[in-house]
C-alpha cells in the first residue's frame, strides 16, 4: 500500500487545483443567477390560472427531473450547435463554458421553480389579503409581505439546491471544461494515472469544504431572516 498511496500528494495537489475553483464558481454563479430568473417565470406559470402555462411548466420540470445531468450536458453540447446550424448560425467555436452554463441554467430553473412554488404555497393567503386591505398595491404586498416570508421558508431548500448544482457541475469536465475536476484529470493524465486516488481525494476535500461552507452560510442567513419566528423556534 505504502508504495501506491502517498498522502503528501493530496497536499501537493491542492494548491494547483484551487485556482481553478474560479471557473467552477463562475459557472455555478451564472447558472444560479440565470436559473433563478427563469425559475421565477416557471413558478409564475405554475401558479397561474392558465392551464396551458401550468402544463408546460410542470412538464418542463418533470423532464428536467428525469434527465441525468451528463445527458443534458451532451444534448446541449451537441444539440444546440446542430440546431443553430439549421438556421445558418455557427456555434461550433464558442467557449465550452457557455454550453455548461446553458445546461445548468436549464436544470436549475426547474429546481428553482419548485423551490419558489412550494415556499409561496407555504405562505397563508390571508397575508396577501391583509396587505391589500390596508391599501398596499398587489406589487407592494408581494415585495414587503409575501416575499420576505417566502424567502425564509425557501432558504434551506435554496442551500440544498446550490450544493446540488455545485456537485452536478463537477460533470462539466466531460465536455472539456477545465474547472477543478478538469484540471485534476489533466494532472492525472500527465502522471500516466499514477496517484490518481490522492488527487481525487483532494477534489473530494475541496467539494466537501465548499458544501459545508454553503450549509453554514445558509443556516446563518436563516437565523438572520427569521424575524417573527422567534417563539416558533424556541418551542
Amino acid at each position: 500500500m505504502e508504495k501506491y498511496f502517498d498522502v503528501s500528494y493530496i497536499w501537493q495537489t491542492l494548491p494547483i487545483l484551487l485556482p481553478f475553483l474560479k471557473v467552477t464558481f463562475m459557472i455555478a454563479g451564472l447558472s444560479i443567477l440565470l436559473g433563478s430568473f427563469f425559475g421565477l417565470f416557471l413558478a409564475i406559470a405554475k401558479l397561474s390560472n392558465s392551464k396551458i402555462a401550468r402544463t408546460l411548466a410542470n412538464g418542463y420540470t418533470t423532464i428536467m427531473r428525469c434527465t441525468p445531468s451528463i445527458v443534458l450536458l451532451f444534448l446541449v453540447y451537441y444539440g444546440v450547435p446542430a440546431v443553430a446550424e439549421n438556421f445558418g448560425i455557427n456555434l461550433h467555436d464558442i467557449d465550452t463554458a457557455i454550453f455548461v452554463v446553458v445546461t445548468f441554467t436549464l436544470q436549475f430553473a426547474a429546481i428553482m421553480s419548485e423551490v419558489i412554488r412550494s415556499s409561496y404555497g407555504a405562505i397563508d393567503k390571508g397575508q396577501y389579503e391583509a396587505a391589500v386591505s390596508i391599501g398596499l398595491t398587489p406589487f407592494q404586498a408581494y415585495r414587503r409581505i409575501i416575499f420576505p416570508q417566502a424567502l425564509v421558508v425557501a432558504l434551506p431548500n435554496l442551500g440544498n439546491s446550490m450544493i446540488a448544482l455545485l456537485q452536478e457541475g463537477a460533470l462539466a469536465y466531460t465536455i472539456g471544461l477545465i474547472d477543478v475536476v478538469g484540471k485534476a484529470n489533466l494532472i492525472i493524465a500527465s502522471n500516466i494515472n499514477a496517484h490518481a486516488l490522492e488527487i481525487f481525494i483532494a477534489l473530494a476535500i475541496i467539494y466537501w469544504i465548499l458544501s459545508l461552507i454553503i450549509e453554514k452560510v445558509f443556516s446563518i442567513l436563516e437565523k438572520f431572516f427569521s424575524k417573527g419566528k422567534k417563539t416558533l423556534e424556541s418551542t
Binding site: 397563508d124 390571508g126 397575508q127 389579503e129 391583509a130 396587505a131 391589500v132 386591505s133 390596508i134 391599501g135 398595491t137 409581505i145 420576505p148 416570508q149 425564509v152 424575524k227 417573527g228 419566528k229
Partner: peptide, 22 residues
C-alpha cells in the same frame, strides 16, 4: 379598487397579522 381599499379597512377572522413584522 386601490382607491376604495384606501378608504375601507378590514379586520379578518384569523387576524392575518404580517408574521414578518412587529
Amino acid at each position: 379598487i386601490h382607491a376604495i381599499r384606501q378608504k375601507i379597512a378590514f379586520v379578518f377572522q384569523n387576524y392575518n397579522l404580517f408574521n414578518n413584522k412587529t
